[in-house]
Simulated scan of single mutants.
Amino acid sequence: MIVTEKESWLGMIFAVHGTTMELIWPRVGVVFCWSILITTIAYLFPEHAYTLTMAPFTVVGLALAIFLGFRNNAAYDRYWEGRKLWGRMVNVCRTFTMQINTLVDDSTGESRSEASEDVQNQRLHMVRLIICHIHALRHRLRDTDAAADLEEQLPGDKLLKRDLAQDNVPAAIADRISRQINAAWRSGRLDKYHVPLLHNCLTEMMGIQGGCERIKSTPIPFTYSVLTHRTVFIYCMALPCGLHDTVGLMTPVVVALVAYFFLGLDAVGDEIEQPFMTDDNDLPLLQLTTMIERNVLQLSGRPEEELPEQITPVDHLLI
């Protein structure tokens, strides 16, 4: 995700990093060179030049702009839903940790004694599992290996290798959290009336995971994207034939400007269609998971030296 201060109007005009210009300039260059070729033929060999009226370009251009707008709205809906899901995950993890810290104890009644070391260790282990779940989910959404992050949270854990071998590592971690909740209840450290509260948080985490997996595994239909790409390409390549009689030698410049508009809109939809990857404008999952990790460890009373460093933008980019 691009994070930057509001630039001046002129600065926004000439911004390149984080915009579609980095992606589409070769395509615009091809269209520009093609326009130069068509314009040159029209002036040097007018008998071989092919001329079209602007009427079809006007109709198709309007329809294409609307079509691209609908596609980009669909892509942004996926992006915004992904951000809302991770916003819910932040809140659920904080709530889950606070409930673990206050409900898991080895005493009952209004007068609660200081928790024993075993209880504190059990609380911390459950919190570490929550952290493992969000890191595993991030890696699952980005198709990367979660082993290093999980081993850092649970060093020497005998069950971790089994969890990492499963197809769905976050679900395996969630299953361990559920077993920890039940173990706390059986040992008398968790009241039976509080068990559903913790399970509700776990259920909410699994629901968020399912929503993220749905976005990742169900892209915008391939045929829809292909039709958009083809229509933009054909429109831009045919446009010089409709302009060289009226625009003259400025045809390549005008065509390049129109191509930048349509190709840029097309590229925006492609970039935000999958919001969980690592493109410049995708969601900063590493920053979000690290923030959650810091929050839940601080709520658990861990010292500052045990907290991960906050993720800050590098060249205005959060990942």
Rank of each mutant, 00 (worst) to 15 (best):
F32D: 07
V30Q: 14
Y79H: 13
F70A: 13
G82D: 10
T97M: 08
D105L: 04
I36C: 14
I66F: 14
D77Q: 15
R71H: 06
L68R: 13
W80T: 06
Y43A: 01
I24C: 08
T58W: 03
M54H: 02
A42C: 00
R88M: 05
R78A: 06
E47H: 00
L37E: 04
N72D: 14
L103D: 12
I38D: 09
C33M: 15
W25N: 11
D105N: 07
P56E: 07
D106V: 03
N73Q: 13
S35W: 09
W80A: 08
L103Q: 11
T20N: 13
L68C: 14
T39Y: 04
M54A: 09
R83G: 08
P46N: 00
V104E: 12
E47P: 00
W86R: 00
T97E: 11
V90A: 06
R83K: 08
S35D: 10
A42N: 08
G29Q: 12
A49Q: 03
V28H: 11
M98K: 12
N101M: 15
A49N: 03
I100Y: 05
T20P: 10
G29W: 11
T20E: 13
R94Y: 07
I38S: 03
L103E: 15
L23Q: 15
F96Q: 12
A55Y: 09
V60D: 08
D77F: 03
V30D: 09
K84A: 08
